[in-house]
Design a protein around this nucleic acid. Sequence first.
DNA 1: TTTAGGG
DNA 2: CCCTAAA
Length: 589
Amino acid sequence: MVSHKCVEQFGYKDSLLPPNARAPRSARKRRSIEKSISEDDNMCAIDLLATVAGHLSFESGCSLDKLIEDHRVVTQNSVKLEFPEEDTPLIPPVALLSQENSYQGSLSPCGFSSVINGKVEDEAEDFSYSGGGGSDAFQVGNFSEDVKPGIDGDAVVLDARPNVVVSLGSSSRTEVPSIGNCVSHGVRDDVNLFSRDDDENFSGYIRPRVTKNSPRTVPRIGDRRIRKILASRHWKGSSRHADTKPWRNYYSQHQKSYPIKKRKYFDHISDSMTDDYRLRTKMHRGSRKVSSMKGHGTSFVSSDSHVKLRIKSFRVPELFIEIPEDATVGSLKRMVMEAVSTLLSDGHRVGLMVQGKKVRDDNKTLHQTGISQDNTQLDSLDFSLEPSSEMPQLLTSHPSGHAYEEVLPVYQTANLDSVLGSDHNDAALFPSGPLGNNDMAEDSKATIPVALTEFSPRKSKKSEQQKQQQQQAAAQRRIRRPFSVTEVEALVQAVEKLGTGRWRDVKVRAFEDADHRTYVDLKDKWKTLVHTAKISPQQRRGEPVPQELLDRVLNAHGYWTQQQMQLQENVNKQLQESPSQTEGMLLLN
DNA sequence: TTTAGGG
DNA sequence: CCCTAAA
């Protein structure tokens, strides 16, 4: 196979096909790789979240439909996967996203944002607060967090604790501090943190299957399919369009919008100036602007038998990620983001936990559940988003397709059945510690799809909306996949034969089955190969390419470059001599 | 959709 | 690898 011949011996003449002599487009095997997705008519993850959150709006008069006990994952306000110095994967509050990324406008009426920033908050202003006046909603927020939960006037201040986020487990589970107890001291002290012991039950497990010998098994995480699928406009920031680099935008924008340090700074002020109300107010104003003030949950129970809740945050399920050691940090981050994005973009059900206990009976009234103005012990009211198999309102329209297969072929699903088997058992749904004590076999442990919602067959029935939603939810840069020597060999071989201007043909010829190698990739690789061949071996990086191959690269490159030049010369010549025949000449060439 | 190049 | 102008 490795014929080491000089260029001339390849019989280029015979294979020298005019660049435009390719098979008609219609006859070509096509791949909708770069298909752009219309974002407008799709619900983004946040919208969905908002929808979910909407159900939490007790003000609508509806009682909690789904009460779950021993809940597991909750979400925080939003998802942000930058890892602060505190080594705490914090997820930025949705509120933040809404504020800074102009999502408020796109949120559903009863959406998260609305709940957080709108009515509830406004209502909160009605609470009188010494020294504060009701003009600033944040004073109320401040109030609810800095003052021991309890009765204050007519209102019972409840605390819906926001808790953490995404924790990554490697060999052992890594507990990730919550915003509440790690970053925001001021909050921690006054609000009850709910137990996170059960976190592992709610885990997504990401595991790219990188198999050297079978490119097809490589995780699709980086594939365009997924990429587009996960592209999210909510990461994009203010503009739904005019942003060609969503993923970059994501990082840049959120890095700016999530100044942990700054928030910490404020928290310190809070700690040291506990008695200075004005300072504290200021602090929260600052927090409001830069942190997750609105992300924390606070509920209010008014005296008119209506419970008013302010969902300040959701926790996100714990995610487990398995990634090769040699993967880049960037790819890890992207994986996490994808996971969370996917998580948020899919159907969920809301879990409720009152005083640490999961409330499962959906038929109970709030009062029966203990959520009432009379209950002064309501110091812990937690909501969570859980992968749900029971979210008709979000799944009804789903065609019975298998989006799962299409979208995330990467993730093994061996355990799916067993997992699904115990549908109504949250713990079973999310085997505690995919990495932990759950004696999961080595080959089966890495099985839980990142997309928690993908667990259920019903969930696989995604509507087009949700599919696209997903597409938008995690547009990521494809993972880097260095070409193997074998691949280089194949590439060189093909280019020697076809030339440097027919990448699609090269693709078909030598990489037909390598879905992750687009003709653009091949073209780019050739470009780098040529460069590599020109520089000294010392300057080369990565897996060394045999000099023999590089020589061939250079030869072929030189040959085809010259070939193209000659062709061009002929064209120009003909153009001068008899312009009218030029067209015919071109065709002949 | 492909090609060709810059980023 | 990404992004795009052009074709």
